[in-house]
Design a protein around this nucleic acid. Structure first.
Lengths: 345, 345
DNA sequence: ATGAAAGCGCTAACAG
DNA sequence: CTGTTAGCGCTTTCAT
């Protein structure tokens, strides 16, 4: 029923190995005439390689897993961010002959288990907290960690220039004349993504001469609802604040909604600036001014790096290799849409 | 290095087969004492089954592929819809011991090839046009097609009640007093998703006594930008229309933006109603009134059905089986948010 | 209740 | 340039 290498070999009158070599592009070892004949027969018979067999024999699967942490039994792939990463990875890898396994990780150990069980060739970690990445001990395959600031040397971080993004936001607000601003983001430990954005933001504000006591920060979860609640109580809880920088567009948009709902206007009463530049940032009224991440570039980099490490490793033994690779930080830029204006009165 | 079945067998003083049986839950064939001993050793040694080896030997992989068509080299997973499906599938399947392979399909033939090459146990087709599904010839594994109205008997459709959704929208607008309405959706052939929504919408409008000539339809691509352009020229091109039903929230939100930009107000001048109830439907001002799909239920159904078919098929031979299964249609309901009001003046 | 033999389809390593 | 020999880790089938 299914065509195997041996079927092609029989028909071409050559050995299975020769066919295998042709199929894998190791054509230096085969004569052009044979190549052509084999390829012809393969095409005619509709040969499709058996991936599990190949993985088993070669102890390598041509699979890169996209690993995403899950809490309990809720779905993953929740954030638009994850989506962009996984979708983009599939596209890049497919063109290079690799495949993407999508897997939710319930417990750290499952990372190593998945690598072994599948003979994975590479891993991309998406949305993993830095502390978890720190603890990871997988040294047989390249591990690319999106948005990670972990110091784990087995891991290659690919992220946006979060510090620079925070700075852009701070400069923009200070330039507009704001003297009392608020940073809104989820609770964080250390200098991860959120910490970087806060540091950059604060730095820019202080550099512009703002009073440190007037560069406040509040902890809010990254959701529209939490943003909305913050927006609703904003003018009561922070009466002097004239501008808010939210670490995520979801949050920023929620804040805008809350402000509007409580009778305030954006940017008339309060200016709002976001981070990400998600699709819906332009759907609001006014549009959301936000720090744009270059997601396609981020994904392309992550994909490029895993592939490079995979193919490089093949040449120099299976270890992740000589001299931990430098993390990559991608540029960000400000997109003006109208949610930032001069301070009120 | 890696623990194999034979390592456990050696240590337990039993055969590999016994260990295999224990691991696969075929415990009826093994004595309780042995089971416990084997399990203990496996846990201590950190045994992780080798998936490729299992797939090769059993000719079945415990993998369900999420297949998504791609045009040229652009990314897949673009729509929030696809995202919800793929993410939800992963969650449901993981809990049942299955895995999700995400794959973009460039050409129809790749569906069958992927099934064979990976020894897939099942397939979920996402965003495939009905004509392509019609042509699919894969009879070894269950094929669940999301949002399909294809008559292909090898395929099981899981979709929302699109006709009913269209009807809800039509009734809502007619009830509000609108007498001249517009349906906006992508070009479609036959009675696919869009065709159903249009049919339901039209039916409801006519039932409410609207003049058939005043139930118009325009073709627009499903994007914010195309919606915006339609919104901008709406009052010029369709001066008498007082309400628009868009087949997708993206489109609806774009239309609202276009109307606002051209100086009109929603719902003051024109009412707008969408379909999907995506997150951002509540981010706009006013919020978008829309027909909500029950995505979690849709995904749960799709997952349940593939699994049921997979495990059912094991018992009755490999064929997709007796009596093509009925398609499933999930309920929809209307979410009021403020973009629908009475007709102007 | 348990085991022995055979083989899934492919590739690594070496021989010619 | 091409072929031979092994064997990846597991499951199937059939015996015991």
């Amino acid at each position: 029923m299914t065509t195997r290498l041996s079927d092609i070999a029989d028909e071409a009158g050559v050995s299975v190995m020769t066919v295998s070599n042709v199929m894998n592009g190791k054509r230096a070892r085969v004569s052009p005439a044979t190549i052509e004949r084999v390829l012809g027969i393969a095409a005619r018979l509709g040969y499709v390689p058996n991936i599990p067999a190949r993985s088993l024999a070669a102890n390598s699967s041509h699979i890169v897993a996209a690993l995403v942490p899950v809490g309990e039994n809720n779905s993953l792939l929740v954030s638009p961010h994850t989506v962009a990463v996984v979708g983009g990875m599939e596209t890049h890898l497919r063109h290079r002959g690799y495949h993407v396994l999508l897997r939710g990780i319930e417990h750290e150990d499952q990372v190593a288990q998945t690598v072994r069980g599948w003979s994975l060739d590479g891993v991309v970690l998406v949305e993993f907290p830095d502390e978890q990445i720190d603890r990871l001990r997988v040294d047989t395959v390249p591990l690319v960690a999106i948005d990670s600031y972990s110091a784990n040397p087995r891991t290659i971080g690919v992220r946006s220039d979060d510090h620079g993004g925070g700075r852009l936001a701070g400069e923009r607000l200070a330039d507009a004349g704001h003297r009392h601003v608020l940073f809104a983001g989820p609770p964080y430990a250390g200098l991860g993504v959120v910490g970087q954005r806060w540091a950059g933001f604060r730095e820019a504000c202080l550099a512009a001469g703002l009073d440190p006591r007037r560069v406040e920060a509040v902890e809010v979860l990254t959701s529209f609802e939490d943003g909305r609640r913050l927006g609703l109580r904003l003018r009561r809880d922070h009466p002097d604040v004239t501008a808010v920088f939210a670490t995520a567009d979801h949050l920023a948009v929620g804040i805008m909604a809350g402000i509007a709902e409580s009778g305030g206007s954006v940017p008339g009463d309060v200016s709002v600036i976001g981070f990400d530049d998600l699709d819906f940032a332009r759907y609001t009224t006014p549009g959301l001014t936000t720090v744009a991440q270059n997601m396609p570039a981020k994904v392309a980099e992550a994909s490029r790096i895993v592939l490079e490490e995979i193919e490089g490793a093949a040449g120099r033994g299976s270890d992740a290799g000589e001299g931990a690779r430098e993390p990559v930080a991608l540029d960000v830029h400000l997109v003006e849409r109208g949610s930032v204006g001069p301070p009120r009165e």
